[in-house]
C-alpha cells in the first residue's frame, strides 16, 4: 500500500502536467507549442543514430574531457593552494576576480587566443567549471581537523601518504559538492560554446532548428538537453554514493548515537 502511494506521488503530477499540455494543444495547432504526440514522433525522427554520432557524441566527448580536466586541475590546484598559507593569501583576490567573471564572456576572448576548434570549447568548459572544485578543495583542505593532522605528523607519515590517506579523504565530501556544481556549469558552457562559430554539436543543431523555424525539432532538442542534464545528475549521485559511502555510513552512526 505504501509502495503504491509513493509511486502515485512520483507519477501523479507529471501525468497531470502532460494531460494539461495535451488538452491545451488539442484544439488549434499552435505554432510555438507542438502536441505531445508530435513531439515524441519528431524526437524519434530527429535524433537518429546518425545525428547522435555527428552532433551529440562529439558534444558529450568535449563535455567529458572538460569535466575531467576541471576535476584534475581543481583538485591538484586546490591541494596546493590549500596547504600553503602564503600561496592562498597570494592568490585569493585574483581567484575571487576570475570566479566573478561570467564564464561566457571568455568565449570571445578564447576565440581570439585559441581559435574556434575543439580546444576553445574545452577550455571554455574548464574555465567555467574549475572554480567550484578548486575553491571547495581549498576550503576542504583548510578545514581539516588539526588533531588528525598532528597525529599523522607524529606518526611520521610521509607527504604522499598524508595526502592519500588524510587530506584527500578529509576534503572529499567538499570536493564532491564542488564537482556537483561544476557538472551543471560544464553542461551549460558546452551548449553555449557551440552556439559560437560552430558547425556541429548539440548547441549548434538546436540553434539551427530555431533559425529555420523547425519548432518541433527545436523542442525535441530542448528535451534532449534536459534529459542529458537529468542523466548526468543521476550518474553523479551514483558516483557520490560509491565514493563517499564510508562518509554517509559514518554520518548515520553519528546521528543515531
Amino acid at each position: 500500500m505504501t509502495y503504491i502511494r509513493s509511486f502515485l506521488n512520483i507519477v501523479a503530477l507529471p501525468l497531470i502536467l502532460l494531460f494539461i499540455w495535451f488538452l491545451a494543444t488539442l484544439g488549434e495547432a499552435s505554432f510555438f507549442v507542438p502536441t505531445p504526440q508530435l513531439l515524441v514522433e519528431t524526437f524519434i525522427n530527429t535524433w537518429t543514430a546518425e545525428r547522435f554520432a555527428g552532433d551529440v557524441f562529439p558534444s558529450l566527448g568535449r563535455l567529458m574531457v572538460g569535466i575531467a580536466l576541471s576535476i584534475v586541475i581543481g583538485i591538484v590546484g586546490g591541494l596546493l593552494i590549500g596547504s600553503f598559507r602564503w600561496l592562498r593569501a597570494l592568490l585569493e583576490p585574483t581567484l575571487e576576480f576570475f570566479r566573478a567573471i561570467p564564464p561566457t564572456v571568455l568565449i570571445p576572448v578564447l576565440m581570439l587566443l585559441v581559435g574556434i576548434g575543439d580546444e576553445m570549447k574545452v577550455s571554455v568548459i574548464v574555465l567555467g567549471a574549475v572554480w567550484p572544485i578548486l575553491l571547495n578543495t581549498i576550503e576542504g583542505v583548510r578545514s581539516m581537523d588539526e588533531v588528525l593532522a598532528d597525529t599523522s605528523r607524529t606518526y611520521g607519515m610521509n607527504k604522499v601518504n598524508t595526502v592519500r590517506y588524510l587530506i584527500l579523504p578529509s576534503a572529499m565530501p567538499q570536493i564532491m559538492a564542488g564537482i556537483r556544481q561544476s557538472l551543471s556549469i560544464a553542461l551549460i558552457l558546452m551548449v553555449i560554446s557551440e552556439m559560437f562559430a560552430s558547425t556541429e554539436g548539440l548547441g549548434f543543431t538546436i540553434v539551427q532548428f530555431q533559425r529555420s523555424f523547425a519548432i518541433p525539432e527545436m523542442w525535441s532538442g530542448i528535451v534532449l538537453l534536459g534529459l542529458i542534464g537529468v542523466v548526468l545528475s543521476f550518474i553523479f549521485q551514483l558516483a557520490e554514493r560509491w565514493i563517499l559511502g564510508w562518509y554517509h555510513g559514518l554520518r548515520e552512526i553519528e546521528q543515531s548515537a
Binding site: M176, S184, I188, S233, L244, Y247, H248
Partner: peptide, 21 residues
C-alpha cells in the same frame, strides 16, 4: 562559489563537513 543551475540543497545527508573535520 558562483555557479549556474547548481544543486545546492542543504540536505541533511549532503556531505558538507567530513568526519576528519
Amino acid at each position: 562559489s558562483a555557479a549556474l543551475d547548481i544543486a545546492t540543497r542543504p540536505d541533511p545527508a549532503a556531505p558538507l563537513t567530513s568526519i576528519a573535520q
